[in-house]
Design a protein around this nucleic acid. Structure first.
Lengths: 195, 195
DNA sequence: TGTGCAGTTCACGCGGTCTTGAACTATATG
DNA sequence: CATATAGTTCAAGACCGCGTGAACTGCACA
C-alpha cells in the first residue's frame, strides 16, 4: 500500500531525462501494483508479483539494482525475491556478454508458478489432512464406546475431504490447460528484443 | 499449534466420569485439528474450523460454554467465532425449550461457507484487478511515447487475468456441484437425535 | 594483494492479525 | 428489584511474517 496509485502530477508527461532512472511511469505503477495484489491474494508475497510484473512489462532483462530502484526495495529483499522467482521458473537469469552484472527476464508462465505452488501446497497438505482424518477414524473405531452415528459423521468428513481434493485437482488441471492456450499466444508474438 | 496431537496417555480409556466435561477424546482432537488446518489453509481462522468440526462431530447442539471448555478458548473469542459462523450459515443457533442458554448446531455445508466466501472475495477482488489493468492500459495508450510492444504485453496481461478469472469461476461452480452431491448424502442419514 | 561492486545471508523491528480478559449489556430467576 | 448467568464488545497484548540494512562472501580488475 505504499506508493499505490499516485496518478502523477498533472504536469510533466515529457519528463524523461536520461538521468531519470527509478521512477515508474504511472501506468506501469498501476499494472505492477495490480499484479502484486493478485499474487498476494494467491498466497505469495506481494513483491514477488511486483517484480515479475515489472520484468514482464519491460521486456528486456533488468539488473537487480534497477529493480531495486524502480520498485523501491532493499538490496537484500530483491535478492531473495529473485531467488524465489527463479527457483519457480518464472524468471530467468541471464548474463549478457560484456556485462558485469546478472540480468533477469520474465518468463511468461506466472501461471505455472501459481498452479505449481498451489499444487505443491495442496499435495503435501491435503494429503496430510486426509491422513489425519483416517487416523482419527482408526482410533475412534478401536474404541468400544464411540456412538455409531459419530463414527458415521467422521466417515462423512472423510469423503467430504476427498471430494474437495478432487475439485481442487480439477481446478488446477483445467486452469493449466485453459491458460496454456493463452501462453502460446503470449510466446508467438512476444515482441521486443528479448535476449 | 497449541495442543496439537498429544495422543493421549496410554492409560485411561475408560476415564469417562460424569464430571469430566472439557476433555476431547483423542480421535476427536485429531479430527478437530485437521479441520482447523484446512480451514486456515483456505484463508479463514483456524478456530472457526475447530468450532465447526466439534459441533459437527458431536451432532447435538452445544452451548458456548461447552465449546469454550472443550476447545480451550476464551469466552469472548467463542462469541465472535460463533457469530461469524452463524452469519455464514454454517452453524445454527437453537434455543431448546426449558434451557436458559443458546445452543449451536453444525450445518453440513461447511463447503458452502468456503465456496461462498471465496466467491465473494473473488468477485470483488478480481474485478478490481481487471479494472486496474484496464485503467493502466487506457493510460498507457494515451501516452505518445509508450513502445508498441509494451502495450502488447499489457494487453496480454489483461487477457491472462480474464482467463484466470474464468478458471476460478469454473472451479467454484464445479466444486459446488460436486459437493452438493455429497451433501445430500450427508443429510439423508445424518444419524443422531438432531434437534 | 588491495579496492570496489554484485550478490547473499540473517538478526532485528515494524505492521498486521488473532486471542485474551475485563468491562459492559441483556436476560432469566427468586 | 436484586442477583446470577449468558452473551457482546473492545482495548491491550501475544504472535508471526515480511522487509530492512548491515555484515559478509565472491569475483573482477589493477
Amino acid at each position: 500500500m505504499k506508493g499505490y496509485l499516485w496518478t502523477g502530477g498533472p504536469g510533466s508527461p515529457a519528463s524523461k531525462t536520461p538521468a531519470m532512472e527509478g521512477r515508474l511511469a504511472p501506468w506501469e505503477a498501476i499494472a505492477v501494483e495490480a499484479v502484486g495484489n493478485v499474487i498476494e491474494f494467491w498466497g505469495f508475497k506481494r513483491n514477488q508479483g511486483r517484480v515479475w510484473a515489472l520484468l514482464y512489462l519491460r521486456g528486456d532483462p533488468l539488473t537487480a539494482g534497477e529493480i531495486e530502484r524502480e520498485l523501491d526495495l532493499s538490496k537484500g529483499g530483491v535478492s531473495m525475491l529473485l531467488r524465489d522467482l527463479e527457483r519457480w521458473g518464472v524468471i530467468q537469469r541471464v548474463r549478457p556478454p560484456q556485462d558485469s552484472a546478472w540480468r533477469y527476464a520474465a518468463e511468461t508462465d506466472l501461471v505455472r508458478m501459481v498452479t505449481h505452488v498451489i499444487e505443491e501446497r495442496e499435495a503435501g497438505f491435503v494429503a496430510r489432512i486426509r491422513a489425519d482424518l483416517a487416523e482419527a477414524r482408526r482410533l475412534a473405531e478401536s474404541m468400544s464406546d464411540v456412538p455409531r452415528e459419530r463414527l458415521k459423521r467422521l466417515e462423512k468428513m472423510n469423503t467430504l475431504a476427498e471430494h474437495v481434493e478432487r475439485a481442487l485437482r480439477l481446478f488446477i488441471k483445467t486452469s493449466r490447460l485453459d491458460v496454456s492456450a493463452v501462453l502460446t499466444v503470449f510466446r508467438d508474438e512476444a515482441g521486443a528484443p528479448r535476449r
